[in-house]
Design a protein around this nucleic acid. Sequence first.
DNA 1: CGTTTAGTACGACGAGCATCGAACTATAGC
DNA 2: GCTATAGTTCGATGCTCGTCGTACTAAACG
Lengths: 106, 106
Amino acid sequence: MSVAVAELTEVGSSAPLSLPAVLHALSDPVRLSIVSQLADGAEHSCNSLEVSVAKSTCSHHFRVLREAGVVAQRADGKCRLNRLQVQALEASFPGLLDAVLRTSQR
Amino acid sequence: MSVAVAELTEVGSSAPLSLPAVLHALSDPVRLSIVSQLADGAEHSCNSLEVSVAKSTCSHHFRVLREAGVVAQRADGKCRLNRLQVQALEASFPGLLDAVLRTSQR
DNA sequence: CGTTTAGTACGACGAGCATCGAACTATAGC
DNA sequence: GCTATAGTTCGATGCTCGTCGTACTAAACG
């Protein structure tokens, strides 16, 4: 079982982006909090975010977000920098991210 | 086991409306299809909608949608008429329903 | 090289979910 | 009253999910 080459440098930029998958990714409070903290447009490492779960659980949530195409991850030294896939989401589901962020950030 | 009185006339108009719950309700393809078919603003009975699952499964999905505050149900003769809770959703999560419907209806 | 730091992968566990068929309730029509 | 129609409720089943601890990988720092 070989791993896609792209996964080593950049993940999350070429998925079909299914609406149910995106909605499911956003339907968990922890993941919603992550997305909310990523909404400043900057890149954040995993542990620079405030999450209330164990490290492995956090990694799991990032994977769900990645596989749904909500976030992208980039290796930087010993950190992984995450950022919201704003443009891709906006292209597939215009207005959705804004609507979610507007109410979850409050 | 007594049933709440309100359930016989009207359900779904006084819930706190949690964003994760709404997103979860919308994250299932069958429920997304139901919501999409309800998007004309009219009331539809359960079996007037095109769903690909058994009657009991359909009933289950309507319950999830109801409990999340996405739809409301009203008894009418031997039918239950369902309608989208457009105003309540718009009040709590402005733009969300539009964003979801715009892409799921296509 | 050894150690710390950042994150992933792997089971494991318990809870929840989508699905079904069958039984039940209630309304409508004959 | 009987029957058909419309939904709900009730297990049961199998899958998925969120959570955790532990083990692992890889980069940085001494």
